[in-house]
Design a protein around this nucleic acid. Structure first.
Ligand SMILES: [Mn+2]
Ligand SMILES: [Mn+2]
Ligand SMILES: [Mn+2]
Ligand SMILES: [Mn+2]
Lengths: 225, 225
DNA sequence: AACAAGAGTTAGGCATGCCATAATCTCATC
DNA sequence: GATGAGATTATGGCATGCCTAACTCTTGTT
């Protein structure tokens, strides 16, 4: 633990964030070098080197050939970056009217530069929001996160009625497609039909029917009502 | 001219800004390497090297041993950074309630990272302000700047009545001292007395008399009513 | 139990970027 | 035309982060 006083390079922060992200959706096991590397678009050798560095910085621990795990410090750093990222996205969308498909790219840069004071001011200005524009939970200032069980829309059965919870923020085209149709976290969705063989899903949303491709349906996370 | 599309390092931007700043208050002549170096806290050798680099980037032109001048491109870059800086200061102070003595440090970092879109959104959100919290003019989006003649408060004669126009943003203590007394750009000032030998000035501001040290009085720029 | 394939690591380098010291050079002035 | 302040060059150091090539583990299969 401990308040991050040290200067952390952008690369270090992005690696830590990546390790956190990969571990998180693979159910918390340790992260492989290759997965990490491909996530960041570098070679495994590079990732391996950086992992060693993260270890000396006390951010990760890795037994060679066994994968990486974040230390408590590393986990804290990851969460604090995630907090800044999501607060920024929320602020940009809500206060500056930046479309939700573009806030991610901006936040990706600003997250590495935001001062503690500014982070606090933004959180305060927004009334300490729980979720970012894409429905992702914003880590609280004590770095706890509300966990919630969600399901990908493509696993529903016909007739299921659910609420749209969240969607990844990295795919602008998807976000734009949804925005054009007024589909955003919070709306109710009823699954009408699903075509076999990777066919589209038909869903009723806001009183209209929409055809959702499999990729999209897999990206949309929902909760049961 | 031309829209800055290329990646410019933070150092490059700060050098250009420094050249602009030094040239600007010395009445536009070319800037010496040593002055530039000491302004940035590096050795003349380093500044010399960077100046050569700025020249290859088309941002500055320098005849060796004769000092540096910004090219039109360089001037444009300087002004655009200045615009971002001052928009940021205004935004932070006005929308996020950051005290005016702290906005400078934040802006100093963010100015290098702000996207064009965000700059526009901020300007728009603020209603395209003319001046930052310290009274400095904000370059317009076409990079023109309103020039205005001002005088340092310490050059006034007893009895002069003036308006506080601006104050440098780099000295937090000064700013805090002023803020505590409700003295900010826009207020009227009447010079009551000046003590000789570098003594303080007595000025009536907001219906109260204040003793202003020489340094402070020299930093405060005013216009005649 | 041996082995191959895949995952991971190490070694060696390269590129960028920025700055410093030391030595040298230039130019304006006396 | 000597001098000294200012400027430049030559070298080198350090920090970052990436790559390729070659090697070593680990593990699942046979
Ligand atoms: Mn990032
Ligand atoms: Mn998001
Ligand atoms: Mn700066
Ligand atoms: Mn200012």
């Amino acid at each position: 633990m401990g308040i991050p006083t040290v200067e952390r390079s952008r690369a270090v922060e992005d690696y830590v964030k990546a390790i956190h992200a990969i571990a998180d959706d693979g159910g918390d096991r340790s992260v492989g070098t290759t997965a990490l590397a491909s996530h960041l678009g570098v070679t495994p050798a590079s990732a391996s080197g950086m992992v060693r560095k993260l270890a000396t910085l006390g951010l990760a621990s890795s037994s060679p050939y066994r994968g990486v795990t974040l230390t408590d410090d590393g986990e804290g750093l990851a969460l604090s970056i995630l907090r800044r990222h999501r607060l920024l996205e929320t602020f940009l969308a809500q206060r500056l009217g930046i479309p939700w498909d573009r806030v991610h790219a901006e936040a990706e840069v600003l997250e590495h530069v935001l001062s503690v004071e500014l982070e606090a001011a933004i959180a305060n200005n927004l009334g300490n929001p729980d979720r970012d524009p894409h429905g992702a939970p914003i880590p609280r200032s004590d770095l706890t996160v509300e966990e919630q069980q969600t399901f990908p829309l493509d696993q529903l059965a016909e007739g299921d009625r659910v609420r749209f919870v969240r969607i990844p923020d990295e795919r602008p085209e998807m976000l734009r497609w949804l925005a054009e149709r007024g589909i955003a976290p919070g709306v109710e969705i009823e699954l009408k039909r699903r075509e076999p063989f990777g066919g589209p899903l038909t869903a009723a949303i806001n009183g209209r029917e929409h055809q959702l491709g499999v990729e999209l349906a897999a990206a949309i996370r929902v909760e049961y009502l």
